[in-house]
Design a protein around this nucleic acid. Sequence first.
RNA 1: GAGUCCGUAGCUCAGUUGGCUAGAGCACUUGACUUUUAAUCAAGGGGUCCUGGGUUCGAGCCCCAGCGGACUCACCA
Length: 518
Amino acid sequence: MQLSEQEILRRENMQQLRELGIDPYPPEAFEVTAYAKQVKEGFKDGEGETPNFQEVSLSGRLMGSRVMGKASFAELQDTTGRIQVYIARDEICPGEDKDLYNKVFKKLLDIGDFIGVKGFAFRTRMGEITIHVKELTVLSKSLKPLPVVKRDEEGNVYDAFTDPEQRYRQRYVDLTVNPEVREVFLKRSKLISAMRRYFDGQGWLEVETPILQPIHGGAAARPFATHHNTLDMPLYMRIANELYLKRLIVGGFDGVYEIGKMFRNEGMDRTHNPEFTSMEIYIAYKDYNWMMAMVEELLEYIAKAVTGGTQVEYEGKMINYAGPYRRLSMYDSIKEYTGIDISEMDEAALRQTCKSLHIEVDSSMGKGKLIDEIFGEKVEEHLIQPTFITDYPIEMTPLAKKHRSVEGLVERFELFVNGKEIANAYTELNDPIDQRERFEDQLKLAERGDEEAMALDEDFLRSLEYGMPPTSGLGIGIDRLTMLMTDKHSIQEVLFFPQMRPQKKQEGEPGAEPGAEA
RNA sequence: GAGUCCGUAGCUCAGUUGGCUAGAGCACUUGACUUUUAAUCAAGGGGUCCUGGGUUCGAGCCCCAGCGGACUCACCA
């Protein structure tokens, strides 16, 4: 592998450290007693106050230094942020031997190296809270130069590390030099933990169900197929976990939820990654009306936990997550945005309506799909504030219970925010006879050419025959919800490691894969 | 999958109608400097111009193909 000039220099610096008796990768733990943010926010040196943080120990990456002869300022970046450190030659080298300053600090340390410092906090003439270093320890040498992103006092960024490909492929670099990226993932983590906390507080049980499934049920999507050698059978990466969670309701749990990865072998773009995180929850003895109220409470709780408030800006629009949200039936929403009442139309009339609205259709589309097309084309984009769309045509929803009062509809809602679906819920179908018929209708759609039609799962039907209590279920796309809560407009920005094409191997560099050097 | 744009130093980017040895800032090296902060000052090193063909006296630039990426559109969450 061809090393750059700077990589060679860093290796030489590492060697010289060894020659000075300094292990560039010491095994000992380094005791940390304070963090950058903590010191910067908590330091007191006002009138009549005794300064605190007078004996602290911090560690982190060296992210820049300003050497002025016998004294220097450097930037130390730990997990909480950056703090300035002051290093004076005669402080860290009290004796005759000035090597630690003149050689180690000035020559052999590089940007990106992990160091530990012990000293005391003070305020410089310029007013910056700084650690006055008494002891300096090398903790880990960095052999590859990091991009150096500079910021001036107005917050302007120079030489930003912004290339999306490099940022996603080398997320560790992105996280090191772009502090705002780290914030997004902290929020993602807060979002998931808030959700979990909310569910656990209700007494619902977090469960795990199979990722490798013999039948890819519960949703309409193309799966990843794999093969189990010992059983010599095909297995599919799950596209949904719905049918397994319902089996657990059959088995007697009143509330179960799972937060986990789903896998769909479909296109990739700024809202789709082949694997994505979804939360599904099923609560016995509830219906979709109850579930809407729960979602309102949940999202308000999450918004507060993640952003501190219920108003969250997205793409310049202020989204209000405080409930209650507007509730609108699918037919009413279409009437509102097109002026057309489709509630009494048959398939031919719907097809004609699509034509008049300039919506492309094909012969494989049934009644439900046609309605979905109209909705997707004419309504979705208008649903900016959180809005529940309720009561979907039965054809497109084979796992939901028939509507209690309107023929041809099911008890389903989707929650739309900023024109995008972020939650989907039903009053679950628990009538095993009806469920079998619905699966059979799906098979007919499949024969007609609908590639997304759902497969029939005999074991699931068997479980329903034993009896499932009335139940409401809900699914939420965690990645998309994270996008909304962090004002990020592509899914890659909320996934640490979004799926990428394989990296082109460099010539003479068979170990281009990460980790191959180790 | 379709369209548009892009690929030059470790990073961010210039590079004219094709014309001398391919440039800048940061980073790096050497030197000066004991409260600086995008530190400053002086000097210096660093390039497979994505890859492979082609046109040409001559290609970073033009043509063809490929690889990789970004954006927009279509489908799934």
